[in-house]
Design a protein around this nucleic acid. Structure first.
Length: 952
RNA sequence: GCCCCCGUAGCCCAACGGCAGAGGCAGGCCCCUUAAAAGGGCUCCAGUGUCGGUUCGAGUCCGACCGGGGGUACCA
């Protein structure tokens, strides 16, 4: 951008903005303007100055430093938190705001793989670029608190937290995580026996060997190794958590196919915390939509588990949310992979097996094997597409419905999923549409056990109604409503020993190990017994070893095996240690942690980033994040957390889980990491697709006659989230060069309220620049650089406009509707440029204007503040306060309505009461004309607002 | 299919249940300029997606539907 010779020399131009911005950024850094003192510890210098202020902790979801750098969509939230933080600092708070980097994990590593450079090299280079771009934006972060999750000094504590989790168990009696040593003590003392499902040896604790005991204890831990079906993604060479697999069975990152297969992997027992994660959502100031997404993901259902006896002796356990419908269970279905399928499969078809049930197989064994093979080969996609037609096969044997004592056939079918409930269902076609569809296909009996309304025309009836066909010798449900029948049935099942009330969750334990290089190594080794052993704290950190070939072993073969890259470093995989049983050789765990590990606790590390004795000092954590005693039930946590909605069930759920464990173990005083969450919208931009359906560089597309061309080719316009994949990115660097950071900040905050997505339109940015130019001109003469303000009394009219503006701007700032704040600043500016067209704005007004601008466009505001004669930064100046005296006028014009329609306006004293308003309105000729001939039935007079005559 | 959010001027967005317009972009006219525009001023532009309800009064509250965006799904 060139500056023409005849542009006034002191005009606010892009070049001027650049000089001002760079100078103030240097000064803020040199002065430590945004250094935020802690109450104690290494960063406590200067705390006296702010000790009396209320604290405020503002945080952004930190970015992962990608190779492409930032585009203008990324900093939307960062600017929002910065404006809010700067405002609240001027409003008297002691504000903590910092920024770090989510540097470990798949995104960073995939970039390194693509470019063939070591992830540490690319990640560090990307961080340098991000720091440059973010610094140029003028964000008021405390630079001393910046962390990167891939730094040894950081991940040492990630590993430490892992050990805490590993060395804990969940006491379901108290619903709390507790140190594992307490469990061992209680087991040794005979106060308790191993928890359900934790003791595969079938003998009491006292009779177990040392190794057996260790195994039983391991089965209690919150971090544990288990062999179970997991999400194996050969295309990424690693296993993935459920949360990282999309609904169509592909990896969230990279869109590779994911297969279920049993593998020995690390998991975290997040399911133990399911009830608390669910219940505590109520105590959080989060949007309803995010809470709902977490609730759905946790997926708590209440009902009953019921055991159906079979001919083979073993019972089939099912979970149902509708135990009241047990009388209508006319068949059973197991998932094809269910472990009981082999046992239940008969060698020959029984005489009453319908032809359709056998799928044409000569024997059940063969028919079942064929179906199992088909089911395993059908991708998740196929299963969805074909979801409407039900398939399955009879296993050739029967179970018994415990309520009716009738023999019911057992099927396998892929509409029953091994991963939910027990992997088996009782099928109740009368009250479940899927079961109805299956029953129709296989000609199975359908018994309604809830009476549908008379006009009910559909098939399965899932609504409320009285129970029917539901009685036996010891139980009569008929006539009861659904809830009553459920309770009665559960009571009966428990008395008869057929089942119990039960709760299940969709949430599974968190698969925590990855067979990738770029992550935190596990602080775990294996001895001769093959059981995992934690390294003692003093041996932390386990440094990620350097490696030439960091690329994951990827494949498109579903049957390939995970091969962690760390296994290639042969001199690292084993280590000689003395872990209390003499020096021995141990094998290291070769997995790394998932990308989410580092982001599970970074908000804690910002508080005390240099602490090498603990992850965070307890007093410092309590100061910034502790629960507020003035608010009953407060969880504590970050006061305002802003980020995208895409982390609703990943980061936000994992981080809550870790935080709760740390709380249970007494390391933090807050029960939740993020007290208030706000989701920002996305920046959208036009994108263009050519005839092949490929996105073309949006910047090179030209509009002609309402159509769009890429070179000579016509392309189709679309609209989407700004980013690399749609080739429609605009970088902040372009904006800094053409307009300056302040203009970019203003524009981004002006396009809409924080929570809304908004389209990017580069040509509209100039509007924000014009505002800065006009404000500049209020204070500075463009030709001489001299001040245009005068030390004069402020006229009443100007005071009224000013104080109204202050009130509205404060409201906009506090409610994160910065667009309104900017509009009001614009309004004041427009008033000043009109009322003082030749200059001479009173200094007091100009100063208030500059201070109100400061959170939004801090560099320009600092420069103007300095020109107005203030040597100190305005960062700590008080934000203007509206004087209520100027918010009301002596007289106001109010509308006069007749039957709700505005017919006239009258001027009354602003404090006029209802009677005075009515009198004034009646004195108005036009009002009288409208009232003439009718009877006034009612008068609604809202003082200060309007008056309305209801005429018959 | 179910759940959540959003529909106001050509576009982005405002409006404690009380006169639909705060602000910006684009458009038009004028000024400044040799010229240009990212300078200045003025100006045009909607009755709030549709239908119904509550109310003295509805963009706002309630119900149904339509459209856009997001989430989720054989979840037993």
């Amino acid at each position: 951008m060139t500056e023409h010779a005849d542009i006034p020399p002191y005009r606010y131009t892009a070049g001027m903005a650049r000089r001002i911005e760079l100078a103030w950024q240097d000064r803020w850094e040199a002065d430590g303007t945004f250094h935020t003192p802690n109450p104690v510890g290494r960063l406590s210098e200067g705390f006296d100055r702010v000790a009396g202020r209320p604290k405020l902790y503002v945080n952004d979801m930190f970015p992962y430093p990608s190779g492409a750098g930032l585009h203008v969509g990324h900093p939307l939230g960062f600017i929002g938190t910065d404006v809010f933080a700067r405002y609240q600092r001027m409003n008297g708070h002691h504000v903590l705001h910092a920024m770090g980097f989510d540097a470990f994990g798949l995104p960073a590593e995939q970039y390194a793989v693509e470019t063939g450079r070591h992830p540490r090299v690319t990640t560090e280079a990307n961080i340098v670029n991000y720091r440059r771009q973010l610094r140029r934006l003028g964000l008021g972060h405390d630079p001393r608190r910046s962390v990167s999750t891939a730094d040894v000094s950081y991940y040492r504590w990630t590993q430490w937290i892992f050990l805490q989790i590993f060395n804990s168990w969940f006491d379901s009696d108290t619903q709390r995580g507790r140190p594992i040593d307490e469990l061992i003590t209680e087991l040794d003392a005979g106060f308790r026996e191993p928890g359900e499902g934790t003791n595969p040896f079938g003998r009491p604790w006292a009779e177990l060997s040392t190794v057996e005991r260790r195994e039983v204890v391991n089965n209690h831990r919150l971090a544990y190794v288990s062999e179970a079906p997991v999400n194996w993604c050969p295309g990424l060479g690693t296993v993935l958590a459920n949360e990282e697999v999309t609904a169509d069975g592909r990896s969230d990152r990279g869109n590779f196919p994911v297969y279920r297969r049993p593998l020995k992997q690390w998991k975290m027992r997040i399911t133990a915390y399911a009830d608390r994660l669910l219940a505590d959502l109520e105590r959080l100031d989060w949007s309803d939509s995010i809470k709902l997404m977490q609730r759905n993901w946790i997926g708590r259902s209440t009902g009953a588990s019921i055991v159906f006896p079979t001919e083979r002796g073993l019972g089939i356990e099912v979970f149902t949310t509708r135990p009241d419908t047990l009388f209508g269970a006319t068949y059973m279905v197991l998932a094809p992979e269910h472990p009981l399928v082999d046992v239940l499969t008969a060698v020959a078809w029984p005489g009453d097996a319908a032809a359709a049930w056998t799928a044409g197989g000569p024997t059940p064994t063969e028919a079942v094997a064929t179906y199992q093979k088909q089911a395993s080969q059908r991708s998740e996609m196929d299963r969805q597409v074909e979801a409407k037609t039900k398939t399955g096969v009879f296993v050739g044997s029967y179970a018994v419905n415990p309520a009716t004592n009738e023999r019911i056939p057992v099927f396998i079918a892929d509409y029953v999923l091994m991963g939910y409930g027990t992997g088996a269902i009782m099928a109740v076609p009368g009250q479940d549409q899927r079961d109805w569809d299956f029953a129709e296909t296989f000609d199975l009996p359908i018994v309604r056990t809830v009476q549908p309304p008379i006009d009910f025309a559909a098939k399965a009836y899932i609504g409320e109604g009285p129970a029917i066909h539901s009685a036996n010798d010891t139980l009569i449900l008929d006539g009861m409503g659904v809830a009553e029948a459920k309770a009665a049935m559960i009571g009966w099942l428990e008395r008869q020993g057929h089942g119990d009330g039960a709760v299940t969750y969709k949430l599974r334990d968190w698969l925590f190990s990855r067979q990738r290089y770029w992550g935190e190594p596990f602080p775990i080794v294996y001895g001769a017994d093959g059981l995992p052993q934690p390294l003692p704290e003093q041996l932390l950190p386990v440094v990620l070893p350097d490696i030439e070939d960091f690329t994951p072993k990827t494949s498109d073969d579903e049957n390939s095996e995970p091969e962690p890259p760390l296994g290639r470093i042969t001199d690292w995989t084993t280590v000689r240690l003395d872990l209390g049983e003499g020096e021995q050789e141990y094998r290291r765990d070769l997995n790394t942690m998932p990308q989410w590990a580092g982001s599970c606790w970074y908000e804690l590390r910002y508080l005390d980033p240099t602490n090498d004795q603990s992850l965070v000092d307890k007093d410092i954590e309590r100061y910034w994040m502790g629960p507020d005693p003035a608010r009953p039930g407060d969880t504590g946590g970050v006061d305002l957390y802003i980020g995208g909605v895409e982390h609703a069930v990943l980061h936000l759920l994992y981080a809550r889980f870790w935080h709760k464990v740390l709380f249970d173990l007494g390391h933090v005083s807050s029960e939740e990491p993020f007290r208030r969450l706000f989701n920002q919208g996305y920046v959208l931009a036009d994108a263009y697709v050519d005839s092949r359906g490929v996105y073309v560089e949006a910047a090179k597309v030209e509009p002609r006659d309402g159509r769009f061309f890429f070179g000579d080719e016509e392309v189709r316009r679309e609209h989407g989230k700004m980013g690399k994949s749609l080739k429609n990115s605009v970088t902040p660097d372009e904006m800094y060069a053409d307009y300056g950071a302040d203009t970019l900040r203003l524009y981004e905050m002006f396009t809409g309220p924080m929570d809304q997505s908004r389209p990017w339109e580069t040509k509209a940015v100039v509007g924000s620049m014009r505002l800065l130019q006009r404000i500049w001109r209020v204070v500075v003469d463009e030709h001489t650089g001299e001040l245009r303000t005068v030390a004069a009394e402020v006229p009443d009219e100007t005071l009224r406009v000013l104080h109204r503006t202050i009130a509205a701007v404060r409201d906009g700032m506090e409610t994160l509707r910065f667009n309104i704040a900017i509009a009001k600043v614009t309004e004041l500016t427009n008033h000043l440029t009109t009322a003082y067209a030749d200059g001479g704005v009173p200094v007091a007004v100009a100063e208030s204007l500059v201070l109100m601008l400061a959170p939004l466009a801090p560099h320009a505001a600092e420069e103007l503040w300095a020109k107005l004669g203030h040597p100190e930064s305005l960062t700590w100046e008080a934000f203007p306060v509206a004087d209520p005296a100027y918010l009301v006028d002596d007289t106001i014009e109010i509308p006069v309505q007749v039957n709700g329609k505005v017919r006239a306006t009258v001027v009354v004293a602003s404090d006029a009461d209802a009677a005075a308003m009515e009198a004034a309105a009646l004195a108005e000729d036009r009002v009288a004309a409208y009232l003439d001939g009718g009877t006034v039935r009612k008068v609604i007079a809202v003082p200060g607002r309007l008056i309305n005559f209801v005429v018959a």
